[in-house]
Amino acid sequence: MSRSQRQRVAVMISGRGTNMGALIAAGMDPLYPGQVVAVISNRPDAPGLETARRYDIPAKAIDQKAYASREQHEAAVIAAIEECRPDVICLAGYMRLLSEDFVRRYEGRIINIHPSLLPLFPGLDTHRRALSAGMRIHGCTVHYVTDRMDEGPIIAQAAIGIEPGDTPQSLAERLLRAEHRLYPHALKLVLTGEVRIANGRAVLRTPARRRIGETDDPDLQVPPATPILVAPDARQN
């Protein structure tokens, strides 16, 4: 696949950007259907900005504190996005709520990764909440972004077992490894058109139901303790 045929991906971050790093790494494979062409952060001290620059990816901080209103800040973010002309926007730890106008502008082209098996535990502090609820499994979800927080159509999910003695920190660290496998896989589904939105759900072009732990995608080969669920609620159309 030539460089010109690959789709353009913009990533929005607020911190370390480890999931951004996984997307950058995936894009280094010339056969991957997309590549990260820009990174945007609402925080100038976000470590992920320097990570992107080390890979010669343009990285821009648009400090939310420098603007009098969210509308003004979002206008600057939109200007930066339009400049890099992305086909898809990936939120990777972007810790700022987006307005309805922003989301609708990029409807169907903006996705997010969330550290829980949605619709369980939307919002923050997901690892502690999963442990407090007595869950036996925990996981992460890649979904389309809509104007309702963490309620967009689910593209793909990954699950891990909760082990005796787990703390929110240990659970988060173990789940992060699954996130780094899942996000590039889910983005690939979007970039190739394997998944699309129909009647408010993410629908796969080909069957994708798997038993827990099953996958034929080499990028998702993980230990048995980290089973993968690929788009478990998708419906073939």
Rank of each mutant, 00 (worst) to 15 (best):
G34H: 00
A231W: 03
A22P: 04
A25F: 01
D150G: 03
H185L: 12
V39A: 07
V145H: 08
I78H: 11
R196L: 11
G213F: 02
S2W: 03
Y67P: 04
P33Y: 02
I154Y: 00
F102Y: 11
I62H: 03
A159M: 15
T146V: 08
S132C: 06
T126A: 14
E83W: 01
Q221K: 14
A68Q: 14
L220N: 04
L182P: 06
Y94A: 02
A202S: 13
D101N: 13
D166R: 10
M95F: 14
A92Y: 02
P207S: 12
V103T: 13
M149F: 12
G17C: 08
E151C: 12
N42A: 12
H180C: 10
H73K: 08
A202Y: 00
S99M: 11
R196F: 05
R54T: 06
C90N: 02
L97V: 14
P232Y: 10
H114S: 13
I62M: 08
I40W: 09
I13H: 00
H180D: 03
N19V: 05
L229P: 04
E100G: 09
A231S: 15
M95A: 14
I62G: 03
A172W: 05
E83L: 03
N42M: 04
A186I: 07
L176G: 06
G93C: 08
A133E: 07
T226V: 14
R96H: 11
R201K: 15
D166N: 13
T215Y: 09
A22D: 05
P227Q: 06
T226Y: 09
R205N: 11
T206W: 12
P224W: 09
L124R: 07
L187T: 02
R54W: 02
A76Q: 12
D45K: 14
Y55T: 01
G15R: 14
Q5H: 14
A75W: 00
R109S: 14
D125L: 01
A10C: 15
C140M: 09
M135R: 11
L117H: 07
D125H: 15
Q5M: 11
L171P: 02
H73G: 06
D216H: 15
V39K: 06
L31A: 15
P33L: 13
T226Q: 13
E194Y: 10
Q7A: 12
A225V: 06
L189S: 11
R109P: 04
R105T: 14
I160Q: 07
G108V: 06
M95G: 09
L91M: 10
E107H: 14
I212D: 01
Y55D: 08
Q35I: 10
D125T: 05
A198M: 13
E83H: 12
S14L: 09
V222W: 09
S2N: 13
P218W: 09
E50P: 00
L91I: 01
R3Q: 13
I162N: 02
Q157A: 11
D87N: 15
Q221D: 13
R174D: 09
A92N: 10
P86T: 03
E214C: 05
I155Y: 00
N237E: 14
T167K: 11
A25W: 00
I62D: 08
I62K: 01
P33H: 03
I113Q: 04
P30H: 04
H138S: 15
A26E: 08
A46M: 07
D87K: 00
A22H: 07
Y183R: 01
A172L: 12
T51G: 04
S4C: 09
Y144N: 07
T226D: 13
P218A: 05
